[in-house]
């Protein structure tokens, strides 16, 4: 009797970790299934229809949307343009964000660090649309930027930045910079100061230490930041539309058009899944590099 109770008690204890895992992760997975997977599946289904089955209309199964993509080369051109935009924005975020993260993690201590962190995070708290429109005030002809330049160098002339590719990059870099700073900060902070001092005592100059020690050790953070930025930038439509104007046509804006202006949901859905496939292929190709870096 006593033996059987202990045995069942032991079994109960052995099971409880599994139950805890299910109880703790279950809600998140249920939510993800309902909120992400089901709509995505619906969209995937739409992409094979002639028209979206809403408001009583009936779509028929077809591959026409995917044929549309293959027949018109400009969709591919736009995807490549968006990939280039993603890479450019990620690169500039690294260029600006890494030094900032380094200073935050290694040079500044205590209260000042918190204050500067706040400055990094504040853009996150403001509304994205407001942020982008505030850039139009800065970048437009005779805007804040041009007037300040004109104040320093009178008669410098117009930069003509508004509604250009650089304007889109500027707006996107501003929006996504905090991701890079935060991920780099985390990996830089984990680097022991002793390592840097050890390298110095061995005769290494700053640049050598950066190249051989800090960059390799911070690589997981840099890669994480770049991925976090690259993916949403490829599909972005708001910044390109508002800041790029005529030059702001990317795959993201075309997809948005299909849903909001042209009401061709099946084509929008098909283009979305083609873009998703492109991203997955890129990550698959770079997987060995990413794995080593992380």
């Amino acid at each position: 009797m006593a033996v059987s109770t202990t045995a069942s008690g032991g079994a109960g204890r052995a099971n409880s970790p599994t139950r805890a895992v299910v109880l703790l992760t279950g809600p998140a997975y249920v939510w993800l299934t309902i909120a992400v997977l089901l709509p995505l599946l619906a969209m995937f289904y739409f992409s094979f229809l002639t028209e979206a089955p809403i408001a009583g209309r009936v779509g028929e199964l077809t591959l026409e949307q995917y044929r549309e993509f293959l027949e018109h080369g400009f969709y591919t051109t736009l995807i490549l343009r968006s990939l280039k935009l993603g890479a450019t924005v990620a690169f500039f975020c690294f260029l600006l964000g890494f030094p900032c993260a380094y200073v935050l993690a290694k040079t500044i201590k205590g209260r000042w660090r918190e204050a500067l962190f706040l400055l990094v995070i504040i853009p996150f708290w403001s509304n994205a649309l407001v942020r982008v429109f505030s850039w139009t005030m800065v970048l437009r002809g005779n805007g804040l930027l041009e007037r300040s330049i004109d104040f320093v160098i009178p008669g410098a002339g117009s930069l003509g930045l508004m509604f250009t590719y650089p304007a889109v990059v500027i707006g996107l870099v501003h929006s996504y910079l905090p991701y890079m700073i935060l991920t780099c900060y985390i990996s830089l902070q984990a680097i022991d100061d002793d390592l840097i001092e050890a390298a110095r005592s061995l005769g290494a100059k700053r640049l050598t230490i950066l190249r051989r020690l800090i960059l390799p050790l911070a690589m997981p953070g840099i890669v994480a930041g770049a991925v976090l930025i690259f993916v949403p930038v490829i599909g972005s439509f708001m910044e390109p539309r508002i800041l790029g104007g005529r030059h702001g046509t990317f795959i993201g804006t075309i997809i948005e058009d299909q849903f909001t202006a042209v009401f061709n949901w099946p084509l929008g859905a098909a283009l979305s899944f083609i873009l998703l496939a492109c991203v997955l292929v890129i990550f698959a190709l770079f997987a060995p590099v990413l794995k080593r870096a992380a």
Binding site: D192, D194, L195, E197, A198, A199, R200, S201, L202, G203, A204, K205, L213, P216, L217
Partner: peptide
């Protein structure tokens, strides 16, 4: 003179081996 120019070998308490 900064550390990198002193030609002094140092062993740290934490050993400070480069993990990469």
């Amino acid at each position: 003179l900064p550390a990198e120019k002193r030609d002094v070998g140092m062993m740290f308490q934490s050993y400070a081996l480069f993990p990469n």
